[in-house]
Each structure stands twice: as C-alpha cells, then as structure tokens.
Computed example of a mutant assay.
Amino acid sequence: MKILFVCTGNTCRSCMAEAIFNKLNTLEDVSASSAGFSIVKGSKTSKNSALLVKENLDCDISKREAVQLTKEMLEGADLVLTMTAYMRDIILGRFPNIKNKVYTLKQYVGVKGDVADPYGGDVSAYQKTFDSLKNLIDALLHKIEEDKGII
C-alpha cells in the first residue's frame, strides 16, 4: 500500500507526516511519501520541521528537497491524504477518477478540520503541528491494521 501525504510546499506538514508514518509503521508493504501542490524548486524541509523530526524520531530530513505533486503520483498512490479540505477538493476537481482514494488526513481517521500549517511560525507552532500529525498517524496506522484484519 502506497500512501501519499500532500500539503502546499512539501516543506512542513506533509514531509513531517511522511517521516512520522515511515518511522512508526511496522506493516509490511505499506509506505508513505509526500509532495506539495506548489513547491519552490530547490527548497528544503523547513528548519523547525527538520529539528522536530530529528528530536522526536531521530531521523534527519534537513537535506530533503521538496517534491512537486504530479498526476502520476496521484494515480500511483493507493491512498492520498491531504492536509486540508481545500487541497482535497482541488485534487478531486481535477482528477474525479481517483475520488475513492482521496481524503483529508483528519477525515480519513474520523476527525473534523484541517491540519494547521505552521509555516512562518515559531518552534511551538511546529511542535503543535508535529504532535497533531503524530496523533493522527497513530490513528491512521490503527485504521490500516483494522482494515487489513490485523487487529
């Protein structure tokens, strides 16, 4: 199963979600990647995102370059999880043929709202987003396990 996390610039939320998911995941044949709607070519993971991933997961994503979202990525993913309803709706508007696999992350795990964008904020704003993502990904992993009949 290929999961694709999507946010705006792929330097804060979606790359943190990818790192958290891949660190916590113990399921075989399940992995995550991430991309952004509107990346700045050559941009790297934000300093605060990289710091929190390093401190909490012992993973270094500081040199990771932002990845531009493509049609092929959307079609190749088994599950596309956006950070906001607006992003989900843009994807569904452009690619109605993949409507059965595109959700917001919160929607997929049964929570209302969007994942807050910490871009431009201080470390505490990033920490709140990181903590929110970790909780949502814990719920996501649990849901995948249930769906696969593991638990």
Rank of each mutant, 00 (worst) to 15 (best):
122 D>M: 10
149 G>H: 11
44 K>W: 02
88 R>P: 06
26 T>R: 14
123 V>Q: 10
134 K>Q: 08
63 K>V: 04
108 Y>K: 11
35 A>P: 10
112 K>M: 03
131 D>N: 15
46 S>L: 08
52 L>C: 08
42 G>V: 04
41 K>H: 11
25 N>C: 14
57 L>I: 02
61 I>F: 01
144 I>N: 07
45 T>A: 14
82 T>E: 02
17 A>D: 02
97 N>D: 09
64 R>F: 04
89 D>H: 12
85 A>Q: 09
18 E>T: 04
93 G>I: 01
121 G>V: 00
148 K>A: 10
40 V>H: 13
3 I>G: 14
136 L>Y: 05
129 T>K: 08
50 A>R: 06
64 R>M: 10
70 T>E: 04
26 T>P: 06
15 C>Q: 12
46 S>A: 14
98 I>V: 06
4 L>K: 12
40 V>R: 14
127 Q>W: 01
123 V>N: 06
40 V>L: 15
63 K>C: 09
85 A>D: 04
61 I>W: 00
63 K>T: 10
58 D>N: 15
84 T>K: 08
136 L>T: 00
30 V>C: 12
51 L>D: 03
119 Y>T: 06
110 G>I: 03
75 E>I: 04
143 K>R: 15
59 C>A: 13
103 Y>G: 07
138 D>H: 15
16 M>N: 06
94 R>S: 09
115 V>K: 08
131 D>L: 07
51 L>A: 13
28 E>F: 05
125 A>T: 03
27 L>D: 02
109 V>G: 08
124 S>D: 10
130 F>K: 12
109 V>A: 07
49 S>Q: 05
79 L>I: 01
89 D>C: 07
125 A>W: 04
10 N>S: 12
118 P>V: 00
54 K>T: 00
96 P>Y: 05
116 A>E: 03
43 S>P: 12
68 Q>F: 04
62 S>M: 08
69 L>G: 14
61 I>D: 01
73 M>T: 03
80 V>E: 04
13 R>A: 10
74 L>E: 03
120 G>R: 10
151 I>M: 08
121 G>P: 08
134 K>D: 00
65 E>Q: 15
61 I>C: 07
92 L>E: 01
137 I>P: 10
51 L>H: 13
31 S>E: 11
55 E>F: 03
13 R>L: 07
137 I>Y: 05
78 D>V: 00
83 M>L: 06
71 K>Y: 04
146 E>N: 15
28 E>G: 14
36 G>R: 09
16 M>K: 06
137 I>E: 03
35 A>N: 08
56 N>F: 05
